[in-house]
Simulated assay, not measured.
Amino acid sequence: MKIAELDGIRLHYREDGDPGGVPVVFGNSLGTDLRLWDQVLPLLPAGFRYIRYDKRGHGLSQCTKPPYPMGTLVRDAEMLIDHLERTGVIFVGLSIGGLIAQGLAAKRPELLRGIVLSNTGAKIGTREMWDERIAGVEAGGIEALADATMQRWFSETFRQTPPFLAWRNMLVRQPQDGYVGCSAAIAGTDFYTTTAAITLPALGIAGSEDGSTPPDLVRETVDLIAGSKFKLIRGAGHLPCVEKPEEYAAILSEFLHEVRG
């Protein structure tokens, strides 16, 4: 396990692949840790340096007191990339990870060579919706929202399989402060204007059964970026890298090769 000692935060991260390869940084969704990508990593091409990290308040990273501004989460990713002395990064962000990707692309485009916006939007939900969820967690813990969240995250077919329980456990075992902090970050974020100014190569990925960030939201967001591409994974929900890892890896691998040049 590796811990990056950054300015005001300790982030847990892991590196796989070719140490000298093009860096690919993965940003996870709300309520998950870097294991989100476990099934995809072995299917990705050689010649890349794959870097996963637990965002603030999740997994083995430090959990600070909520709320978190989205700018703080973007800065965490920025500091980690600088700490690892990387440039020309391809940033793969899922859900809130996709918001971080958009924020980073707007703030530090020189760090990046491309972004993947997976199951995300320039704005996700409303402040009122997120305030209600935060209140629910503060009153009854993450467990209080777990069943409704699982219905939005996964297709009905996947919810009947044994691995489903592990993902529910991952959600409810995340630090409550981290979940609340990141929920507040999503609530306060609207990137429509800044994302429309991004000029980096971009790929949008959506799941047809996604109840959190429906395909139309993902397509609308990625269409803000000139020259972007969009892919739909049928039969998958909010975490297609979990439900359809082979298809997800194939789509991602094609983009990695295109952007590497």
Rank of each mutant, 00 (worst) to 15 (best):
A4E: 10
E5C: 11
E5F: 10
D7C: 11
D7P: 04
R10N: 15
H12I: 03
H12K: 06
Y13S: 03
R14S: 15
R14H: 11
E15A: 05
D16V: 04
G17W: 06
D18H: 09
G20M: 02
G20V: 00
P23Q: 05
P23L: 08
V24H: 07
V25P: 13
F26C: 09
G27H: 00
N28D: 11
S29H: 02
L30E: 07
G31F: 04
R35S: 08
R35P: 02
D38T: 11
Q39Y: 14
Q39F: 10
L41G: 09
L41C: 11
A46P: 05
G47I: 03
G47T: 06
F48N: 04
Y50W: 08
D54L: 00
K55T: 13
H58Q: 13
H58G: 07
L60S: 05
Q62V: 01
C63I: 06
C63T: 15
T64L: 15
T64R: 14
P67V: 07
G71K: 10
T72F: 04
L73E: 00
L73A: 05
V74D: 01
V74Y: 02
R75V: 03
D76W: 03
E78M: 09
M79L: 15
M79T: 13
L80M: 08
I81N: 06
I81T: 12
H83A: 12
L84K: 14
E85V: 14
R86K: 13
G88I: 05
